[in-house]
């Protein structure tokens, strides 16, 4: 009975996704097509340069040059807020390390065969997907924060399977180096243009991997920092209380 209900639910959700993906106007199938989107599209694709051009994939010489407009705002125009966000996360990780980071060793129960065999595969794909998400942060949805959290989820799974023990020291070294480099990139803009966290690199052609100037660089750093930070939190928690 329960399996039948689960199967029906899965089939229903699958039909829903299929029907919407195949609906006319594909790609927008999941959103409400009755909402007029011409005004917002016009604003989104309007170039900020003098000639009032529209932004097109493959175009060159845009002010920001990132295909994902959310990333353009978060990393470029409001980069200082992102630095603050990283600092907030760092403070939270520090507090958890203060509370839970005792040096006593705890033993944990050995994981079963299925868990131990299946988890390395899943964790590997989680870490690869997380890296993809933060490397392509300026092209596709996502960025340093979800990518890093996905990597931390992979670490958590790896810890559960007790097949892989990441080193606490290396996690701390990665986190500190990435955070420091982020601030250094900010100073690069300060030295070159007299403004902290201003884009010091060429923006390239819209839609390429090497476009959007320093967004790629910063999101890789943020991804490494958030990933190692959340992994550190998870590793602090992974000590079984006796």
């Amino acid at each position: 009975m329960r399996q039948t209900a689960a199967l029906l639910a899965v089939l229903g959700i699958g039909w829903f996704f299929y029907a919407n993906a195949m609906a006319p106007g594909a790609g927008r199938g999941l959103t409400d097509r009755r909402v007029p989107s011409k005004v917002s599209m016009a604003y989104l694709s309007k170039s900020v340069s003098q000639d009032n051009d529209t932004v097109k994939p493959g175009g060159r010489g845009y002010e920001d040059g990132s295909a994902n407009i959310v990333t353009a705002v978060v990393v470029n125009y409001r980069g200082f807020d992102t630095l603050g966000e990283v600092t907030v996360l760092f403070t939270a990780a520090l507090a958890i390390a203060l509370l839970l980071g005792d040096r006593r060793r705890f033993t944990r129960a050995k994981s079963g065969t299925i868990l131990g065999a299946a988890i390395p595969l899943v964790a590997f794909f989680l870490i690869i997907t997380g890296s993809y998400i933060f490397i392509h942060g300026h092209l596709t949805p996502g960025g340093g924060f979800p990518g890093g959290a996905m990597i931390a989820a992979g670490t958590a799974l790896a810890l559960l399977s007790s097949t892989w023990k990441p080193s606490h020291t290396w996690v701390k070294v990665l986190e500190g180096t990435a955070g420091m480099l982020y601030v250094l990139v900010g100073f690069w803009g300060l030295v070159k243009y007299g403004s902290f966290l201003k884009n010091p690199l060429a923006t390239g052609s819209l839609g390429d991997l090497l476009s959007g100037g320093f967004i790629l660089l910063i999101y890789i750093l943020v991804g490494i920092k958030v990933g190692s930070e959340l992994s550190g939190i998870v590793m602090n928690l992974d000590k079984e209380a006796e």
Binding site: R28, T31, I133, P141, G142, G143, A153, V234
Partner: peptide, 22 residues
């Protein structure tokens, strides 16, 4: 469904995944 894929991804990874595990 409201076509804010960035927020949806963060909510799914952090809210549903990692915070539940923590």
């Amino acid at each position: 469904f409201m076509s804010s894929a960035d927020v949806a991804m963060t909510q799914a990874v952090v809210g549903a995944g990692l915070s539940t595990a923590v």
